[in-house]
Computed example of a mutant assay.
Amino acid sequence: MTKSYMNLDVTYQFAVEMLKNKEPQEIARNAAVEYYPETSEFSVKYLGGTFLVSFNDGTVEPVEEIKVSLTEKILILHYLNTANGAPLQGKFISFKELPDGAIYIEPFTRRTIKPMLKLFAERQEEFVELAKTIGAEIQDLGDTSVTIYPFPKVPITYVIWSGDDEFPASGNILFDASAPFYLPTEDYALVSGLVIYQLGSLLQNSK
């Protein structure tokens, strides 16, 4: 992970301070989330769950009884801080096309594409069915592909090509061209992997 995630407490506090310096109604509009003035809280959809984020002190709490890591709390705050309301463009770009993405392509591939193929290259039907449980949309790329929205304005498309006797299975992870307006590049490496991790947990629980 890049330097900003090396000290999580500092990164979290920095994100909290950034949030305080913004206008809450504008944040809500740009990020497509709800804001409740009576409690000064945002309601944020993240990976199928709902989280309440305090505008006053930046606390992030799940509505459901689920665990949320400090890293994920930072990710949610980064989404609120970065989102600028840009419309989705409907054009796919690769991780390398994100700002500075080429620099981090090796760790991105190691943490996202390789685990996806290890878990699902031979279980593509299960991949689709599990992805549907967190709101995935089916695509027509590769042999199997789905678009998952970890945040309301952040579609991520997972693509798998089946292997054969000559070539192993391969895959890619694609983003909407508006992606730089919603999260920093390093966060796309993080959240793309977290989606695969969640699908892997669902797979394990289904056995």
Rank of each mutant, 00 (worst) to 15 (best):
Q204T: 10
L174Q: 12
W161Q: 14
N172D: 12
E166V: 14
T157L: 05
A189H: 05
L203W: 03
P152K: 12
Y158A: 00
L190D: 00
I156S: 01
S192E: 02
L190A: 00
L202M: 11
F167C: 12
G163M: 11
I156D: 00
E186H: 08
I156K: 02
Y149G: 06
V195Q: 01
Y149E: 05
K207R: 14
N172L: 10
V195Y: 00
F151A: 01
Y182D: 03
S201A: 03
N172Y: 09
P184G: 09
L203Y: 05
F167M: 13
I173H: 00
P184E: 09
P180C: 08
P180F: 03
P180A: 04
N205S: 05
F167R: 15
A189D: 02
N172C: 09
V191H: 04
L174T: 14
I160H: 02
L202I: 10
S170Q: 14
G163A: 06
K153E: 04
Q198P: 15
Y182N: 09
A169H: 11
S162A: 09
P150K: 12
A179S: 09
A177F: 04
P150N: 09
Y158T: 12
F167W: 08
D164V: 10
E166D: 12
A169E: 07
P184H: 14
W161R: 15
S192W: 01
P168M: 10
W161Y: 13
A179L: 10
F175C: 09
S170T: 15
T185Y: 03
Y149F: 07
F151K: 15
D165K: 13
T185F: 02
I173W: 00
S201H: 07
D187R: 11
I173N: 03
E186Y: 03
Q204C: 05
I148E: 03
P184D: 09
L199D: 04
N205F: 03
A169Q: 13
G200T: 09
G193F: 04
D165T: 11
Y188C: 01
D176K: 15
S178G: 06
I173P: 09
K207P: 11
Y197T: 08
V191Q: 01
Y158L: 08
L202N: 06
I148Y: 00
G171M: 15
I160N: 04
S192G: 02
L190M: 10
P152Y: 01
Y149I: 11
G171L: 15
P184N: 11
G200E: 02
S192Q: 04
Y182M: 07
L183K: 07
E166N: 15
P150L: 06
F151N: 08
P168Y: 07
Y149D: 05
S170D: 12
I196G: 01
S178H: 13
P180N: 08
S162I: 13
L194M: 11
I148N: 04
I173L: 03
F181V: 11
Y197S: 04
V191E: 00
I160D: 03
K207H: 08
W161M: 12
T157R: 12
I156F: 01
Q204V: 14
D187F: 07
L199W: 02
I196A: 00
Q204G: 05
S192D: 02
S192C: 04
T157F: 01
K207C: 02
Q198K: 15
Q204W: 08
P168D: 06
L194W: 03
Q198W: 02
F175M: 10
A169D: 09
A189C: 09
K207G: 01
